[in-house]
Amino acid sequence: MASLFHPLCGSNPNTLLKLLTTNGALSTKRFSQIGFALTIALTLWPFSTLERVLMELTRGRRSPIQAPIFIVGYWRSGTTHLHNVLSQSPEFGYISPLATGLPWNILGIVRLFEPLLEKALPEDRHVDKVAVKPNSPQEDSIPLASMGAASYYHGLYFPKGFQRHFQRGVFFDEDNPQVIEKWQNYHIHLLEKVSIHQKGKQLLIKNPVYTGHIGKLKKIWPKAKFIHIYRNPYIVFHSTHHFFSRLLPEFALQNYDNLPINDLILESYPRMMKALQSDSADLPANSFVEIRFEDFEINPLKTIEQIYQTLELPGFEQNSDRFETYLSDIQGYQKNSYSFQPKIIELIESHWQPFIEQWGYKVP
């Protein structure tokens, strides 16, 4: 059974109403979630409006935030695991679960009700057994979707427009520069608030969508650094299908039969990887590092040291014990397992063969 607390509880009333009224008929089974989201949005509206006004009024008096470090990689390539490990360093800031759920209220009312709100956190991420704790770092896709930026999460919430929202949220609508401008404005606003919440630390931001948008991020953050993690494409395909299939029962406010999930995965992977290769080609050597998930899994500390050395980051030796402690704590974690049918293997290879060959992968 889906939780009463839907991610859209973090929207403001205008954004929420626009999403609810422009995406087709809603499922009557989800009316309780929708009603709860509207109640929360209306209740928090005065506080979120005040917080937004104060952010605008104080912008000129705040120091610029440090250029973030972005963790990129196609869905299910190990970005979350890497994010969790690196965030053990107290030198990095990140987006907390409460900031993800209520992005307009990060600096105000969320802090007042943190103990109560933390009890509403799910035990895991729905798609795997990775625990969600009050200090678990999160990506920015959900908060940006709640704020009103184009996002593939809108396709999960309103699957009647799944394909349209996926293409718009992952690749943007190049015929409409306002879509990109709106995402950019919300992205900057969110990270400015998170920076304040994290006491000015350098932010560690993870988002699979950014795999194809390093060029756009460099225009916003010229000194940003990037970590790309890649994984066996055969596993990535199955795991990504599992990812979308598991989130739909939790988040969909409409019926979601016969969605073209496989087609979108097969088509988006090479498109995002080609964009990443093009965008990263001219980056300075200390701004981009690429790691193999399987190497990270076998020897995580060596891989983390490689990241620190390549990106010229300070603090590896001081924080290595923290990394080791976290890795020891999750040693018993069991990954999802998948079977590999010949027809699926053929389908994957017909779309992704250049990357399979480039990285030297085989069917597990």
Score class of each variant (00 low, 15 high):
F5Q: 14
G10N: 12
N12C: 13
N14C: 12
G24T: 08
S27V: 13
S27I: 11
K29N: 15
I34C: 11
F36N: 04
I40W: 00
P46W: 04
P46G: 09
F47R: 12
E51V: 06
R59G: 06
V72T: 10
Y74P: 03
Y74T: 09
W75Q: 08
W75V: 08
R76T: 11
R76Y: 03
T80F: 07
H81M: 09
L82K: 03
N84S: 05
N84R: 04
V85C: 00
L86Q: 00
G93N: 03
S96H: 07
P103R: 02
L107G: 03
L117H: 08
D128W: 05
V132H: 04
P134A: 02
Q138L: 06
E139A: 02
I142M: 07
P143T: 10
P143D: 11
S146N: 12
M147F: 09
M147Y: 07
Y152D: 10
G155R: 03
L156Y: 03
L156V: 14
G161M: 13
Q163A: 14
F172W: 15
F172C: 11
P177G: 08
Q184E: 14
Y186A: 11
H187C: 07
L190A: 00
E192N: 14
Q198R: 04
K199A: 12
K201G: 02
L204P: 00
I205N: 02
K206H: 07
Y210C: 04
K218Q: 11
I220D: 01
I220H: 00
W221D: 04
K225W: 03
F226I: 06
I227R: 01
Y230I: 05
S245N: 11
E250G: 03
P260T: 05
I261W: 01
S268A: 14
P270M: 03
A275Y: 05
A281C: 07
E290P: 02
I291Y: 12
F293G: 02
N299G: 05
P300T: 11
T303D: 09
I304K: 00
Y308H: 10
E312T: 14
E312R: 10
L313C: 03
G315C: 10
F316M: 01
E317R: 10
R322Y: 00
T325G: 00
D329N: 09
Y338K: 13
S339A: 13
S339C: 10
E346Q: 15
E349G: 08
W352P: 10
F355S: 13
W359A: 07
Y361G: 02
P364T: 12
P364K: 12
